[in-house]
């Protein structure tokens, strides 16, 4: 793809909705939020009986196997996230080369590019579970929702896909994906819910 020749300005899902800065209470932030942008994302659906073959193809290319359960499996550059029976999201930290990867996988799966379809948010910090408890109807206790677990559910009547990544320097790390069109309402919920604890917002890739 002639990416360099593109003359149109891309406008990510968070544009006009949220920006870097501090939300709510001042002082040490109870929650840290990173607005993610620029990732590649696609839905992969295996043909009937074809999940194993698809998984092998992914292992061969990316070194990660498709989880059969609501889990996320990650390499340095890619994640595969369970998103329904025989269905996964494939995420790449960059869109560079993503199109050709999808092209290659389309022999083994129904592939639908969703790179622009979701807004993604990474959350961490000592109060991250307290914020999420205001909207997530899942038990996110460390023992109930382990690193690598994922869930499709809703927050404030908005469909979300969330998962837990490996712990970071400030404890548990969650990521949430939400439909692009809903991100304004989602952010309204998040900002109101996180305000009590104070939230540092930054932007990031991947």
């Amino acid at each position: 793809m002639a990416e360099t020749a593109r003359s149109w300005a891309a406008r990510g899902a968070w544009a006009g909705i949220a920006q870097a800065g501090q939300l709510g209470a001042t002082g040490p932030a109870g929650v840290t939020a990173t607005l993610l942008d620029g990732f590649g994302l696609a839905t992969l659906i295996a043909a009937p009986g074809g999940a194993a073959a698809l998984s092998q193809a992914i292992v061969a290319r990316l070194g990660i196997a498709l989880p059969a359960m609501p889990k996320i499996a990650s390499s340095a550059s890619h994640d595969v996230i369970w998103s329904g029976p025989d269905q996964w999201l494939l995420r790449a930290t960059t869109r560079e080369g993503f199109g050709s990867l999808l092209e290659a996988l389309s022999a083994q799966a129904a592939v639908s590019d969703q790179s622009d379809a979701r807004a993604a948010l990474r959350l961490s910090g000592p109060r991250v579970r307290d914020v999420l408890a205001k909207g997530v109807m899942l038990d996110l206790h460390p023992a109930a929702f382990a690193v690598g677990d994922t869930g499709l559910t809703s927050i404030a009547h908005i469909g979300v896909h969330l998962w837990r990544l490996a712990d970071g320097p400030d404890g548990s790390v969650f990521e949430i994906m939400v439909a692009r069109s809903m991100v304004g309402s989602f952010w309204s919920w998040f900002a109101a819910s996180a305000a009590e604890f104070g939230c540092r917002v930054s932007t990031g890739r991947g």
């Binding site: 839905t43 129904a110 969703q114 979701r118 692009r180």
Partner: peptide, 10 residues
């Protein structure tokens, strides 16, 4: 053999 997904948001 049908594989469907919404791409409304894309």
């Amino acid at each position: 053999d049908i594989r469907m997904v919404s791409v409304s948001e894309q």
